[in-house]
Design a protein around this nucleic acid. Structure first.
Lengths: 237, 237
DNA sequence: ACAAAAGTGTTGCCCGTACACCCATGA
DNA sequence: TCATGGGTGTACGGGCAACACTTTTGT
């Protein structure tokens, strides 16, 4: 087969920005690079695009290799391309953002990569342009979560309303009135009240809720309003 | 310098989805390919990423080559990567969306590419996965324009309120109450009323307005509400 | 004079916000 | 019994949508 002539072929990398929420803080899953350059420095989990796979497949593969998880919420964010972003040789990097239930991950931890969950405000220095990727991902998450129920992807199967609210309050660094928040969230019909309570964080105990997946899917695209108008973030682009 | 070993290097293309608005219809600028494969078929304007440029620079270069325009509103949309999307050899394509004032373009037309503006509902068949790109771009434009004053990028320096309203009505295929629309738009302080009128589309004539660029930049990130709630589009991802 | 498009105000309703007390339980 | 966090209702106000007539001017 004839090829395009006189064009430069370069490497394509995938990097995954993996968010989790532990009940009070957002965390990022980072690895310690096992190969040069920048060996042993902290980095996003990544890999190179292989000949027979699409970028989405590559991202799934990379995420699974690190966490063991499949069918995780993940979407392509942005492609980074500064000519000198990788000092070894020219590489463009397609960044993916994944939101995972931090509990699920804990069971599947693979130690091959020296992975570690870092709280968002205590991130180590990262290699290459990975900090830029993380900053963009944070800003996009804030933007998107203000409009769509995307943060639910970070929750375990059963969670409490205070837990959910803490997740929003932490992301927007604000306090939300719990009566208004509860009313808004429940009015979407996306939550199902369970019979059991979570007694780990109070004496009275807080009822567990779970997601009504049908409602969730139907309403995922809807523009919501869990965040008071004044606290709305800016677009990032 | 040492390179990464055993990894596949592939071509990276840039494709530009170029939107215009002629006063009543949205249009897309397409070219007739001058080289194989699919020679003479209609296609998005594109090119290959060169060794010393970033993707943004490549997109600017490609857009300028076709239209002569610089400093145009353009942003990276998505990277397409199906292994067989280009039959010649594996190529990933980074799609950029540009919004241009169709009047400006007319003066600068470059005939090298047999370019033509097609109305959005009369698009020809496109090569490769370019239709998928266009569909995603349409859907993202609808989403983003419902929240941010991005469509102003399509307007000439002076335009009328009926012109502006037609642009929104066409994109959302809906009728908007002109009293409510005017009030909302003017309340942003982004528009400056000019002294002259446009008499081409009515006997009475409609006042020209222009953009207050300071206000526009300040408010670009704000979440707006020109579109009635019921007509709000869905997210696309 | 009439046709065709531009311009302009008011009302009602709904949604979003502010706000404070009681409940359940373990220690 | 008391301390801790969970759960609930109301009233007010602003913003959004619905709605129709007058103005201008070219023909």
């Amino acid at each position: 087969m004839i090829k395009y002539s006189n064009q430069t072929r370069i490497l394509t990398a995938i990097d995954c920005i993996i968010f989790g929420f532990d009940g009070s803080d957002y965390k990022l899953l980072l690895i310690q690079r096992g190969f040069a350059p920048e060996k042993e420095k902290w980095s996003l989990m990544g890999g190179f695009l292989q000949p027979s796979e699409s970028l989405d497949e590559a991202a799934d593969r990379v995420l699974k290799k690190l966490t063991g998880l499949e069918n995780v919420y993940m979407e392509q964010m942005h492609t980074f391309s500064k000519p000198d972003r990788d000092p070894v040789e020219r590489t463009i990097a397609v960044a993916y953002v994944a939101l995972i239930d931090i509990q699920k991950y804990k069971k599947q931890i693979s130690n091959d990569f020296h992975a570690h969950w870092f709280p968002m405000n205590e991130l180590p220095n990262l290699i290459f342009d990975h900090e830029e990727m993380v900053n963009m991902a944070k800003s996009r998450l804030r933007y998107k979560a203000a409009l769509h129920p995307i943060l639910f992807e970070l929750l375990p199967a059963k969670f409490t309303l205070p837990h959910l609210q803490a997740m929003y309050e932490s992301l927007y660094e604000t306090n939300i009135d719990k009566r208004n928040f509860t009313r808004k969230v429940l009015s979407t019909n996306m939550l199902v009240k369970e019979k059991e309570k979570d007694k780990t964080s109070s004496k009275k105990g807080a009822f567990y809720y779970s997601i009504d997946k049908t409602q969730y899917k139907d309403q995922f695209q809807t523009v919501l309003n869990f965040i008071p108008r004044n606290e709305m973030p800016n677009a990032n682009e």
